[in-house]
Amino acid sequence: MDWSAILSNTAQGLLSPATMAFALAALGLAMHFGFAGLLNFGIAGFMAIGAYGYAISILTFGFEWWQGILVSLVASVLFSLLLGIPTLRLRGDYLAIVTIAAAEILRLLFLTNAFVDVTGSADGLSGYHNSFRAANPFPEGDYGFGPWTYNNIEVWVLILGLITLAICAFLLLLLMKSPWGRVIKGIREDEDAVRALGKNVFAYKMQALIIGGVFGSLGGIVYALPSAVNPGVYVTSLTFFVWTALLLGGAATVFGPVLGAVIFWVLQAFLSNVLPQLVSSGILPFISSIQASTIRFILVGVGLMLLVIYRPQGILGDKKELTFVK
């Protein structure tokens, strides 16, 4: 057992583009589900729009990196509108079905061979980094200490990711403390009651869907910034991983999703390192080390179930709320 390697890899999970991407997507879901009560099971689709929108506008249209980000955001707003106009009049579970289908349609569109010139089909997209790296204000060299040592490109990605995450969390905090947030929470509890008080429920739900969608696509962009866009990433299980992070931290909180994403990735890093080592040192019998590293996904599923049953309000959720969960 090489504990120093395990711990160092685990520590890296604390601060990685993937962690921040998950935190952003989970913030989007917190807006959708935790506050507005919209059961969105298509967050992977929003992330795919972010990632593909960014990569395609750079590779196909020759945009600058920041223009690529803007294109992604506009695309995610359009996707929210497209999704919301027909479906927001539906009740919760129907929205869930539609969003899961919409995300799959998107993924298959990105995967199909018909658009291989633009989307790269199954190979995905890569090599869109020039403009982004040219804008890097950090001179070449290593930054940080211990397990958190990064080169200048990684630091640039992390800093941008952190700034985005901070802005989004702050924005969500402001929104939910405002009267607007009160209406949104009211809609979560009972939209007919809110309608009877003279609020345009459909408009509020659409605004919530768009804001959460923008957060999700920002997550997709941060995910794509350091490396490549791979269609195998934006599958339904990504949606459920983000849901796990959200529920872990607390769905109706602002910092819960961030904390949940961090815990999720730290645990993932820890388990993917420790399980194969347990096998190779003979502690874990019957399975190969390749099988061992996928056990973590089973553990994620079990963890999600236990969480929903025993602590549905999450780590940061209000304890009093638990008393009243229907």
Binding site: P179, W180, K185, G186
Partner: peptide
């Protein structure tokens, strides 16, 4: 239709009309 997970005061405030902060 009480809005269960809002406080009583929040329930009340939600009723008020013409709130700029709701935009």
């Amino acid at each position: 239709k009480a809005l269960s997970l809002l406080t009583v005061l929040q329930n009340m405030k939600l009723g008020a009309k013409d709130q700029r902060g709701e935009k």
